[in-house]
Design a protein around this nucleic acid. Structure first.
Lengths: 166, 166
DNA sequence: AGCCATTTCTTGAACTTTAAACTAGTAAGC
DNA sequence: GCTTACTAGTTTAAAGTTCAAGAAATGGCT
């Protein structure tokens, strides 16, 4: 046999794939950097932290269990724990014991946090818009969403909340 | 006047834009996390550091000026400086004075660094492929590349290396 | 009830990143 | 030649992230 299974030549990326991949890396680096600076300047927090406030503002009663928030934001619970500690020091979020499960904690968006969010939102949308959506056709926006969703879904633990399907 | 210029309602994202934006955030979080873990496990370094070795391996004589490498990888010079210090401790890169400019430094990929890279590459390509390219149609790969390039180009200092055009 | 595995969240240390200040060398104007 | 401005790269300290370990509560299972 010329190429035994354990010495198989890897399936390298085609030129198109390689170019797309490099473009993605550059776009994501520049974008994270851009948004982090914008929000650090205008709202005093990095983009991920802003995202946490957004998720909380979308939740009923402006509160979410730590694990739910971590899953929604796609970050580890450890990272979230540190982040909430910091946001709590800013007075933008507070922790609250979960009544039904004594292990649980709710992260609650404070009124002050909500104000900060409302104040920062317009500038942030403008930054996102001018970096991305003002540059894409409506068709491309659709394609972009589809592609990102495929990638995101592929990386989720398939039946994370449906263990019997695994 | 009903809405003075300084109280203009921000141009919020449309539903399509909002969905695409959330999908992007999720995809990029999950992807960075996935690749960081994969490379940390298989090569002992985070994804950005691996990217630096890749750029060096592509450069003539496996070396690049610090500033060029920082620009290629879209990271700050400070970040690069720290990263190279760490990679130098691993013996995968070494610094070399630039002959023509006494301020300058070249980052040089060592033979050992090149070996580490060659050993890690197949696993990494496989990770990228299975997370992204195996899930997209060839058409989508093209769209993805185009869109990312538009975003990346939009965030570059327009004539960074053509100051007379600014 | 008692036991064991699991879940929830936090912690501390190591590591990475950022922002700003700093050193040293180059370049431009006079 | 001297001054001034700029460029290349590093350094420091603070902020953020990861990893592994740990405390506390829950949920079966017997």
């Amino acid at each position: 046999m010329k190429t035994p299974a354990d010495v198989e030549e890897p399936r390298w990326l085609t030129d198109d794939e390689q170019h797309a991949w490099q473009a993605y890396i550059q776009a994501s680096m520049l974008l994270e950097d851009h948004l982090d600076r914008q929000l650090q300047r205008d709202a005093g927090m990095p983009h991920v932290y802003y995202g946490l406030l957004v998720k909380l503002s979308w939740a009923p009663r402006h509160r979410l269990r730590m694990t739910e928030l971590a899953e929604a934001a796609k970050i580890t619970r450890s990272r979230l724990s540190h982040a909430i500690t910091r946001l709590e020091k800013n007075g933008w979020v507070r922790r609250e014991d979960c009544p039904s499960d004594k292990r649980g904690q709710n992260a609650v968006l404070t009124d002050e946090g909500f104000e900060v969010l409302k104040k920062a939102a317009p500038g942030h949308v403008e930054a996102v818009r001018s970096a991305i959506f003002d540059r894409l056709t409506p068709e491309q926006v659709g394609q972009f969403g589809d592609i990102c969703r495929i990638i995101a879904d592929g990386l989720q633990p398939e039946g994370a909340d449906l263990p019997w399907l695994r």
